[in-house]
Design a protein around this nucleic acid. Structure first.
Lengths: 82, 82, 82, 82
DNA sequence: GATGCGCTTTAAATGC
DNA sequence: GCATTTAAAGCGCATC
């Protein structure tokens, strides 16, 4: 039986291993994503822009506009606009 | 057919969607991991400890690999490999 | 004297330590920067926007315009503008 | 005097400039580090090896700290600290 | 000798 | 506010 210093060692080990396995799979998907970007790049696309596109599609439109408004304000404050 | 402003819109769209799909799957795995932590917590484990164990195991592994890599480099440096 | 397996151990050590010292200083500056951001935040500024400002100031204006142009193009290609 | 669109322009400017100055210094240190690597290379060392040594020393240190942290956690878990 | 590419490192953003 | 995750920069390398 597996009680070590009041800790259920077997259960703990099981949790740790499950997590490690899932993380491994996750890493695999990350690789896949990287490959798609590579492929896109190889086809002549700019991956940085693709990333932006994906981010924008994720982002709520209202949020986006607010962000831009604040930025404008700050730019004005610094005389960065004519 | 799909050329918009000089850009192969179809291909671009395909890349974007593939990435989004993979990211979706990744998010799913992330959820799973979170659930395992929850479960562990529900069983009375401290997730902070579990996280640290996992980090440590990862480091140990990386460490070992580094050690081997450096050994290789030295062997090369000393002409011990052809 | 310090020749170990054909390697000038003393010299090597000296290089390593110099680099580590410089990296230490660099880390110190990074801390300082973080503190300035904290202070700005405490004064009510939005650090995310400050970061953007700094990035923009760094960026060559021409680059910026080109980036925007490309982004526009891609957005059009995906029908993200009306 | 410095209120522009509701923003304390002077303060903002001051923050931005402080950060830019610190970043400049940081860049200087980065240069220095690069030079040390160059010098080492000029002396016949393989910079790849040096980088690996440094990485390894960093890891060892982090590892040690992790070990201690986890030990602390376990001690806590076992009620060995007040 | 320059350019592009991939990888490592560093910075920024997100989520708890 | 901290820890994790994601994005961008910088660097060295290989190639032409």
């Amino acid at each position: 039986m597996s009680d070590v210093g009041g800790i259920a060692a077997d259960r703990l080990k099981s949790f740790v291993e499950r997590i490690e396995r899932l993380e491994e799979e996750k890493r695999g998907l990350q690789e896949d994503i990287k490959e798609v970007y590579s492929e896109a790049k190889g086809t002549g696309f700019d991956t940085k822009i693709i990333r932006q596109i994906i981010r924008l599609r994720k982002m709520d439109k209202a949020d986006r506009q607010e962000q831009e408004a604040i930025l404008e304000l700050y730019k004005e404050a610094l005389g960065m606009v004519e």
